[in-house]
Amino acid sequence: MKAVKMMDNLYLNDFTRGIFKENPTFRLVLGMCPTLAITVLVKNGLGMGLAVVAVLACSNVVISSLRRFIPEQVRIPCYIVIIATFVTIIEMVLQAFIPALYDALGVFVPLIVVNCIILGRAEAFAGKQPVLRSLCDGIGSGLGFTLGLLLLSLVREIFGNGTLLAETNYAIQLFGPNFEPMRIFAQPAGAFIVLGLLLALTNIIFKRFQID
């Protein structure tokens, strides 16, 4: 009974670590390019986040199951080829089924290949740990990344566009007709500044609750 519980904890720990303690966006500050670039609307942020979850889960599982066969010296090129394969698949799926999202994300869809989070998890975790734990870790880290994108895009969409979930079926106009959107939030400069402030905020929260 106790053994079972410990097993559960192990997987749960792998899963939650990526979301809170080692959140890719706020704690590790990895994968900044898509984080800053495509978070103008919540829809894009969520789409990118889920695409990364899919790639990260698949690549972690494959890399972890091949970890005994990949030679130490050429592991990075091997990891990259595996990741690139899954990104190509995701790219084709998006292009075929959600073309609007594919157009909105633009070149950042193929650029998931060079998202440091994915290679980072492969190198730090999946290359050494068993398959199931790697899967939990992949999904957790991916969701942590999605959380970061979601928060940033929420702030930027609310202030920069005055809407919530624009370009979806659930679009809400938040302010009255006289609301003048603060365009700076939708601009590159706004992305940097909002993310900087969010980082400071998480620093305060983590310090207050002593999570480190």
Binding site: G196, L197, L199
Partner: peptide, 14 residues
Amino acid sequence: GPLQGTAITLITAG
């Protein structure tokens, strides 16, 4: 304090 490190760098970049 809370702005130290990456946070202030990002705001500078902004």
